[in-house]
Nucleic acid binder design. Structure first.
Lengths: 112, 112
DNA sequence: TTTGTTTATAAACATTGTTTAGGAAATGGC
DNA sequence: GCCATTTCCTAAACAATGTTTATAAACAAA
């Protein structure tokens, strides 16, 4: 396992997408949430792959929903954050906040 | 090239480390800055590898410093952000801000 | 049983993250 | 000069994460 075990870029995005959804979050919902909020051009499987990896790492947990969707379709897998996933978010947040503090993005970057 | 071309997790960290240093930023300085600000347990080569990749992508630019360090030692490579690198930071910042907004980290995550 | 819908997985490949080992370029003492 | 030491950087390999393409599971309705 990696040294610090920090969240990858997309892992963070998916985790935040999940965290934003109050209830009954599953693959498609998370996909939509990310797409809407970020405008990012992602694909559905990308989200699934990442959710599976996050689950393997213990950052999220899933339960399989009851079979009957409105009309047809495979059962949903609902996700939620674990305590560890929650902590990972906090760690990422703190680290990024500290790094961003002291950065002035609006000014000249090249003078020489 | 990747779809959205977003900054990787460590790429962002290095870019921010660089951005925080007003002048004469080079490998060791950036390494130290990241270490001090984040408390992260990184290695020097990790920073160099990433700087090289960022330069290849046009996000940073380097110039080789004059040879004379205090007493002995190879010449430094000073780095600065390019306009593109600057934009990448802005894009990352906006995306993360939007995602974080609406996330309440202080509350219960599991109820069922 | 066939068709259509929704959701999810599998496998492969590309990029990024991290480590281990070593080389380049300078200084100072002998 | 030659050798040891200091400082900084590179190379190559491997591990983890990001992304795509193709495909399958599970159900409803015709």
């Amino acid at each position: 396992m990696a040294k610090g075990n920090y969240l990858g870029e997309f892992e963070l995005v998916v985790l935040l997408g999940l965290a934003r959804i109050a209830d009954e979050a599953y693959g498609m919902t998370i996909f939509e949430e990310i797409k809407v909020v970020t405008g990012r051009d992602l694909t559905v499987p990308a989200v699934y792959v990442t959710l599976n990896r996050l689950e393997k790492k213990g950052l999220v947990l899933s339960r399989t929903g009851e079979s009957s969707s409105e009309r047809g379709g495979r059962a949903k897998k609902f996700y939620r954050l674990t305590a560890t996933g929650h902590e990972s978010l906090e760690v990422s947040q703190e680290m990024l906040q500290r790094l961003w503090q002291g950065v002035r993005l609006g000014e000249a970057t090249s003078k020489s």
